[in-house]
Amino acid sequence: MENISISLSESGPGQVSEVRVDGVIDTNTARELEEVFDTLMKRGRYRVVVDLAGVEYISSAGWGIFISNIRDVRANAGDIKLANMIPNVYEIYDLLEFDKVLKAYSSVDEARSDFSSLTGTEVKKKTRM
């Protein structure tokens, strides 16, 4: 069976959390990633960058995690940003037109900087309230 390893570097509210996934996100391994997302949502970490550099394949279950969470994340002025997709994964992302709902970046830094430039100040105000 394929393996998956997930490392989470979490930061304070309003800050960007980074999820680094390695391996294959298929029906069997998707649960682990789902748990990570559940934890993030519970703690109010709505600004998530997922580093997919080490992911060879994402099954429907994997995509489902991003798609099912994006509504709540957006409602809280956050976003899920996908970084470093390998060509095989990107092809599927492109084919399924997920670019309409999930943004892709070629590096983690790029994804991070997109957070700070767009909604940074607005979120800070909200958290202060």
Partner: peptide, 17 residues
């Protein structure tokens, strides 16, 4: 897809794919 995201559920994604 947009409606699927609005629903916030995973059901239907498979069929969409």
């Amino acid at each position: 897809l947009e409606k699927l995201v609005e629903s916030g559920r995973k059901g239907g994604l498979g069929f969409y794919m």
